[in-house]
Amino acid sequence: MDALVLVEHDGGAADEVSLQALSLAAAYADGAVNAVVIGAGADEPAGLGGVATAFVAELDGEAFAPDAWAAALCGLIGRLAPGVVIAAGSDRGNDVMARVAARLDLPLAANCTAAQPTGDGASVTRVRWGGSLLEEASLVGSPALLTTAPHAFAEAPRGGGAAIERFTPALEDGDLLVSVREHVDAGGGGVSLADAAVVVSGGRGVGSAEAFAVVEELAGLLGAAVGCSRAVTMAGWRPHSDQVGQTGTKIAPDLYIPCGISGATQHMAGCKGAKHLLAINGDAAAPIFASADYAVIGDLHEVLPAISEAIRKARQS
């Protein structure tokens, strides 16, 4: 049984999450692993470890057009008859695979952390609730359509050696109607929450928009990004772009400092990638402490100014 993998890339270099999808494909399929590569820079796909043939789709224009990508995949599925088709569980991977599943009327298991073939499809483990819960499920249909949960699989080696075959996908009318018309860059400055090495977040316990000054002060001293919980965005104290969690931003800093945040599963779904967690909360029984490496129990309005002051002193001496 062969596998077909949708490889997302930056100018031809495969994304990490796509290398993870390739490694599931190699483990899942006993035959060849082939890849589909589409978009700007796709002519020279690089470092597709373990891929037999990289099929490079030639589309009119280079802008992302999810229906055309789905059409390209469906065409190859018809031709190669793979037993499994895998993409990364990224925004684009999940989007395109949902369209493929809809076109072929096949089941799709999104964000898998494990998958094995069975007689009539696949047995999968997949992520629910942003990673707070795992589901064992049976998928019935062929090819099995899967996406991989980010960072659930090791990356396939970036080795070379894939044969390259160009093809022009057969498109239906309307397959190019949905396409990216324009890209707007992020408004300047500041530390981006998703990439920050340190994040200091405030929750309902902060009390008001103005009271975030103590959170901002500590963040400023540490060169950290400011985050918050959903209780805070719902109260209008901070914009949603600051929200950490299942329906906010997923962060992976070296140090995460949640202050006055209880630790609801949906908040924790956004900070599982943090290497160290230092929680500040007035309630010693708050669930956040179960995920913390370091705990400070107390009123954040006393604790945060004291920490900022102590940092300044330590830096002076």
Binding site: L255, L278, F289, D293, A295, I297, G298, V303, A306, A314
Partner: peptide, 20 residues
């Protein structure tokens, strides 16, 4: 994880600075 308690209230500040 078993959290290391750095202290209660403002007096935890020096221990936090050590961790930093």
């Amino acid at each position: 994880k078993q959290a290391r308690i750095l202290g209660h209230g403002a007096e935890a500040a020096p221990a936090v600075v050590e961790v930093l």
